[in-house]
Design a protein around this nucleic acid. Sequence first.
DNA 1: TGGAAAATTTGATCGACGTCAAACCCCCTA
DNA 2: TAGGGGGTTTGACGTCGATCAAATTTTCCA
Lengths: 227, 227
Amino acid sequence: MNSNLKLNNRDRAVLMKTPFLQGLSANSVVRMLSTMSVLNLPVRHSVFREGDRADAFYCVLNGYVRLYRLSHEGREADIRICGPGETFAECLLYAGEKYGYHAQTAENTTLASFDIQAVRDIAVEEKDVAQAVMASLSRHLLSTMECVANDRLFTAPQRVANYILARCPVDGGPAAIRLPFQKSLLAGMLGLAPEALSRAFSTLRKFGVTVRGRAIQVVDVSNLRNV
Amino acid sequence: MNSNLKLNNRDRAVLMKTPFLQGLSANSVVRMLSTMSVLNLPVRHSVFREGDRADAFYCVLNGYVRLYRLSHEGREADIRICGPGETFAECLLYAGEKYGYHAQTAENTTLASFDIQAVRDIAVEEKDVAQAVMASLSRHLLSTMECVANDRLFTAPQRVANYILARCPVDGGPAAIRLPFQKSLLAGMLGLAPEALSRAFSTLRKFGVTVRGRAIQVVDVSNLRNV
DNA sequence: TGGAAAATTTGATCGACGTCAAACCCCCTA
DNA sequence: TAGGGGGTTTGACGTCGATCAAATTTTCCA
């Protein structure tokens, strides 16, 4: 939970490339950075809890953060997995005063934390910041709607195939990709139990997908579209 | 598909109370209205199709619009149901240039249509418009995230109970509410087949819920929390 | 390099929900 | 009043994916 104002080079690079800061005027960047602080959190550590007063939003510089909800009986459902360069909880800038879900690190993680009220104030004065907020909210809304549609339309093997397809650089022919995190995290991201993800991978063997650890090999990418 | 610039009183009242226009300066309202046109669409009529160039977003003045995606085999999955006062496709203001889903009326429907590029331009100059856009995007993002969580955490009867609970004015004691649309629309909204919704209602009989047509009666609202 | 802890896979079972078909209901019109 | 059509309900059935438990692999340290 080490809070700290100094950034290493890699983290700084990630931060400046995030849609929130990229393309801002030098002045806006300075103002944004002045409201920011850096957190280093160990794995499986809470960032905030559902119902906490929302006074900050975050940008992942390194590692992964899981956003999830709990049922009454304590079951967890992931809503979103946030990786390097992604922001979360910015929707609290303009709606609601409490976090609507839990946020927990899935690895050792470095976060940039922005004061919500301060950024609200900056956005009023700096148009490019307001633009960045709108663009970020728009993108997140689209991807969350896509998530609803995927859950409702596709089976587990199809969702896994979609995940792979979205990450294959070329369209036809063979491809190899590497998962950036544990399979159990991917399972949560796709709305599956880890066992179901495992079985989905084994179903995909018929379609030319081989998995060893985090490495995924695809014989023919265009085949995956028939799953 | 009658397009028309004149609003009746009811439609005008709905329009002015929508979060997008409420609270704007008189000047901003005038500018927004000047980019607007009104559409009257019959039931089951397409508003736009997935992949169309996105050059407008919409506010429902009357009726309901279904946002949905199609699978390869033609199955439909609803993503959101929009009722009077709600806006849709505003996320296209700042991300993507094509609609990512289909929009179709579920009843005879009146829509206000706003030119995306024109509103983008207005938002740059009028801060209160930018604020309204951000607030609207924030709210939609939160409710869509909630939708993902509901789908993943709760069974059909629980989702229906949540829907009823959210619409009961008082907390304990009896309540009566009325569905604003067909049950098949509610089913889609909750990510269910109509048959599953019907069975969920019959499960809820044990918990003091009786349904006749669109009328729903609840013996004791606090009971519903135990479903 | 060994050994413990964690992650993943596999098997068995079960409940939830989609699908199809038929029955029913309600409202509308000829 | 009969007929018809859309929406809803009910029944039968199958599939998908959650859960629990156990086996197996991988990872991480000391």
